[in-house]
Design a binder for these strands. Structure first.
Lengths: 196, 196
DNA sequence: ATATTTTACTAACAAGCGTTAGTTTTGCAG
DNA sequence: CTGCAAAACTAACGCTTGTTAGTAAAATAT
């Protein structure tokens, strides 16, 4: 054999996914063409197919990478020794942190997962649903132990997850307020909103 | 003259915009083709151009309709005789109501405004920015009159607007919880979160 | 150094896109 | 009933899309 699937092969592929993430974020999945993507990488569109099977795969890589990342963190939070409300706060801060440090991937996943193709679309949706369920269970525990007020756990999760998503507006216009203050204010509103 | 621009002409155009809204919501702006849109209306793609100038115009109609709607309501709230926090609550409930009653238009506007073409894209962004500014001013007044805790007004607006956007997840899966309870829980979390 | 594999290239495909031109049908006004 | 405008049709345009085939260059292993 000539070269195992090591370093450079992988790094080239990762590079492609990385640039694709940026373009998908800027223009959206369907409005991004393989030719434009190739151009940004200094190559021809046809050459991309030496590294990936098709445009689909790029979106898959992004979305399922995120899903795996989220699930891994959820496991970690569930296994930590904390009160229920502390776990919820950890999740809130994690999601805020992801929006700040992995903005483009999160953004693309949130907006373009709809364009995944069918066996994987169902898989993705199921993972997302399961994640929200685990999140809701943690909120429910905090309600039952009277650490927070009586809200429907699903409504709380919905509110939290989407509030955090709003950081995308801040990313477009980050001058008014620092990332740290945004995080603190957002945690303040959401956690104080849940408390009694 | 044969027929003024009345009833039927307008209603046909509105019908087109209405179906386009549904398709844009389902598939996104770029993934929706004029041929598919026409098919859903029982006509040929070319016939659409007797009613609209192009695909762009459909997106414009949707986005600027929403912007006008929002601005009109903002004016109404500003002129109402209420405390600052009451105004904020009115806005929160208005946005929740819009997500529930005009879901598809709001969704498409939120996601696809990026694809507006240039003189109008700038116009839209400026309107959006101005709206957020007016919203933030109301929050700031509530902070200054000590009705709510000291948060950065922009962070609060960001949190509120995006939390409400999360109703799109509920729309996909409305069995777990009623619209009314969702609204009450969301208002509870957000308003209680703002209060001291 | 040679053999082998990986990666890039050029050229082209079939399909789909938004849109226009020209024509026929429909439907209301006089 | 006639005339005219609105709204549908067919056909086609130029262009872009994702992707494949075949080949040349580059990089690696022995």
């Amino acid at each position: 054999m000539a070269k195992a699937v090591t370093e450079k092969t992988i790094s080239r592929k990762k590079q492609i996914v990385s640039v694709a993430t940026r373009l998908f974020h800027e223009k959206g999945y369907h409005a991004t063409s393989m030719r434009h993507l190739a151009e940004q990488l200094g190559m021809e569109a046809a050459s991309l197919y030496n590294h990936i099977s098709g445009k689909d795969e790029l979106l898959q890589q992004i979305c399922f990478d995120m899903a795996t990342h989220y699930n891994a963190h959820m496991e970690q939070v569930e296994n930590a020794s904390s009160t229920a409300i502390e776990r919820v706060e950890k999740l809130v801060r994690f999601h805020i942190g992801m929006m700040l440090s992995h903005f483009e991937e999160v953004y693309v996943t949130n907006r373009d997962w709809k364009h995944l193709k069918e066996p994987l679309l169902a898989n993705f949706l199921q993972q997302r649903k399961a994640y929200e369920k685990r999140f809701a269970t943690l909120v429910e525990k905090a309600v039952l132990s009277r650490e927070i007020q009586a809200v429907h756990p699903h409504a709380a999760v919905l509110t939290i997850l989407s509030a955090v998503r709003g950081i995308e507006f801040w990313q477009r216009n980050p001058r008014n307020i620092s990332a740290e203050q945004l995080e603190e204010d957002m945690v303040k509103i959401l956690l104080n909103g849940l408390r009694k």
